[in-house]
């Protein structure tokens, strides 16, 4: 019996070849960079709050959006952290 392929495997191969990840980039560095950027967002949100407190803030929405951006970035980071730890535990449980 012939089963119709659900996916065209050739096209996937072509796509996979197109984007070769830069092998020089270290995972550790990437993670560090991204965490720094998240920290920057937190600082930005803090700065917006401080401006609000001293009466320098321009608009209510910019203050709240800065806080929201920072919160979302942090939530994202926490999720990624959870995934990393999960995969690490998965690896450590593996029978060698």
């Amino acid at each position: 019996m012939k089963v119709n392929p659900a996916l065209n495997l050739n096209s996937i191969k072509v796509n996979a070849n197109r984007q070769i990840p830069d092998r020089n980039v270290d995972f550790k560095d990437t993670l560090k960079n991204e965490l720094n950027r998240i920290n920057d967002l937190q600082l930005k949100a803090d700065q917006a709050s401080q401006q609000l407190a001293v009466g320098e803030a321009e608009d209510i929405h910019s203050v709240l959006l800065a806080a929201e951006e920072a919160r979302l970035a942090l939530e994202m980071a926490i999720q990624i952290r959870n995934k990393i730890i999960e995969s690490y535990q998965e690896l450590s449980r593996m029978q060698v």
Binding site: D59, I60, H61, L64, L65, A67, E68, R71
Partner: peptide, 9 residues
């Protein structure tokens, strides 16, 4: 409008 802006997040 300001009260509406407070709904962000």
């Amino acid at each position: 409008m300001m009260l509406k802006a407070l709904e962000i997040g």
